[in-house]
Computed example of a mutant assay.
Amino acid sequence: MHSAAKPRQTVTQTPDMNAVALKAYGRIASAWGLSLKEAAALADMSESTWKRAKKPGFTGDLTKDQLLRLSAVVGIFKSLELYFSEPVARLWFTQPNTGPLFDGSRPVDSAIDGGLPHILNIRTYLDALRGGL
């Protein structure tokens, strides 16, 4: 049984979209207290690229994976801000976690190690917590 192929959804990236995503991500990385190395790895960039990318006027392109990572991280941040009060919302991503996705490691480390699929799993996990599912 063959299922009909779904049409590919493409998102045309614009410099404005990249700038907004990078600005939001930079603010989140700062709010979470991520190191340069952590912020770069989470965004799937080299440290030197992240240093350039977080400055206003960055004209480099983001890969689809990078843009999806930034978008998912924004979603994680929003879920944490809605679900937890301060300071837990800001500390949650960088503290050891015994939850089912983390096995005692920090969510930031598991997100870096697991890449985009795990970042999306964390977002889904938090959305489920927030939604009471």
Rank of each mutant, 00 (worst) to 15 (best):
G26V: 09
R27P: 00
A29L: 02
A29P: 00
S30L: 04
S30A: 11
A31P: 00
A31W: 05
W32Q: 05
W32M: 06
G33P: 00
L34T: 08
L34Y: 05
S35D: 10
K37F: 10
A39K: 03
L42Q: 02
A43V: 05
D44K: 08
D44M: 09
D44N: 12
S46F: 02
S46D: 11
E47M: 14
K51E: 13
R52E: 08
K54W: 00
K55G: 05
K55W: 04
F58D: 10
F58R: 04
T59I: 07
G60N: 06
G60I: 03
D61Y: 03
D61M: 08
D61W: 02
L62G: 02
L62E: 08
T63Y: 09
T63G: 07
D65W: 02
Q66M: 04
R69V: 03
R69E: 10
L70I: 04
L70K: 04
S71V: 03
S71D: 07
S71F: 02
V73Y: 00
V73D: 00
V73L: 01
V74T: 12
F77I: 03
F77R: 10
S79Y: 01
S79I: 00
S79P: 00
L80A: 10
E81W: 12
L82S: 15
Y83L: 13
Y83H: 11
F84Q: 09
V88S: 11
A89K: 11
T94I: 14
N97P: 03
G99K: 08
G99C: 06
G99A: 15
P100Q: 12
D103C: 07
